[in-house]
């Protein structure tokens, strides 16, 4: 519990830094007024809008005002939707979450057996096939795989819907698209981690006890092999979110990724700020989750000391 609290406290300075970066990035992209007003607007109109938005204040005043708003959870209103940006972003969060989780499930279902199998069948034909496929899976861009899957399973063979959301069938193709990319990375990790663990002395001990090879591999080896995999996969959360941006756009999945891409195109800065902030928090939380899982998997790590 103390570990959890100190971790949460450690998050605060990170959030400060993120808010700082987000603030300046948005201001580096140019004058928001020229984006918000039509080309025909007069200089007076532009000046009035700048004044009302506080853009004529010194930068540090602007930053303090912005921070005061951020602390209250106010990222400003989206000029496209005319609603508070944070609300719009949070509304989209469950859809992204569903996609991310189901992709992780797909990835795990592929990667765990494939990784284990290629490790125990090292340097055989099957290992070459699995390792080769994972290189291929890593090399295929998400958008390409997504479009190919739509072509094959939605257009030529109409099993799944082309895009959109609503039913579990809508979830299948996006999850496979995103899941295979993660599975590729995960398979290689599990394979190498497994190979290392299988040479360990406690594995020899387990065999000398007369255990079935499946017990040796799936109990004694896997639990140890997963420790580094969990850490590295948690660090991949950023990649996962990057993947949702593309996958959601390809499949018109109404998640935060799609929203963010649209907001960037429309220069809807309030939404970009809010979404960036939420994504940053998600990455931090997933790292925290990884630490907790790590502790569960490896009893040697004690955070409370």
């Amino acid at each position: 519990m103390r570990f959890f609290l100190t971790s949460v406290i450690k998050i605060i300075p990170v959030l400060f830094i993120i808010s700082f970066i987000v603030f300046f990035l948005v201001r580096l992209t140019g004058d928001p007024v020229s984006l918000m007003l039509p080309e025909t607007a007069t200089d007076q109109q532009r000046e009035d809008l700048r004044n009302s938005m506080g853009l004529n204040d010194p930068v540090y005043i602007q930053y303090l005002n912005y921070m005061a708003d951020v602390v209250r959870g106010n990222f400003g209103d989206s000029y496209k939707y005319n609603e508070p940006a944070l609300e719009i972003v949070l509304e989209r969060l469950p859809a992204s979450f569903t996609l991310a989780i189901s992709s992780m499930v797909v990835a795990t279902l592929i990667a765990v057996p494939a990784g284990i199998y290629s490790a125990i069948k090292r340097n055989t034909f099957i290992d070459v096939v699995i390792t080769g496929s994972s290189v291929l899976g890593k090399a295929m861009p998400n958008f390409w795989l997504g479009i190919m899957l739509i072509l094959l399973f939605a257009v030529h063979i109409s099993i799944f819907p082309v895009s959109g959301s609503g039913t579990i069938m809508h979830l299948v193709l996006p999850s496979i698209t995103l899941g295979t990319a993660i599975a590729a990375e995960m398979t290689r990790l599990i394979r190498s981690s497994m190979l290392e663990v299988l040479g360990a002395e406690y594995i020899r001990t387990a065999r000398s006890k007369g255990l079935l090879e499946t017990v040796v591999v799936n109990k004694h080896a896997l639990r140890n092999a997963l420790i580094p995999v969990v850490t590295i996969m948690a660090l991949q959360t950023a990649t996962l979110i990057g993947g949702t941006l593309i996958t959601e756009t390809v499949f018109s999945w109404p998640g935060m990724g799609q929203l963010l891409v649209q907001a960037v195109n429309a220069r809807d800065m309030a939404i970009v700020q809010a979404a960036t902030f939420i994504i940053a928090i998600l990455v931090i939380l997933s790292n925290l989750m990884a630490d907790l899982t790590y502790r569960y998997l490896d009893p040697r790590i004690k955070y409370d000391d």
């Binding site: 406690y202 020899r204 001990t205 004694h220 639990r223 140890n224 420790i227 998997l297 490896d298 009893p299």
Partner: peptide
């Protein structure tokens, strides 16, 4: 019984 008691037992069980 193996040589290395430190590494011969599985650390996670």
């Amino acid at each position: 019984i193996f040589q290395e008691p430190m590494t011969s037992l599985n650390p996670v069980f």
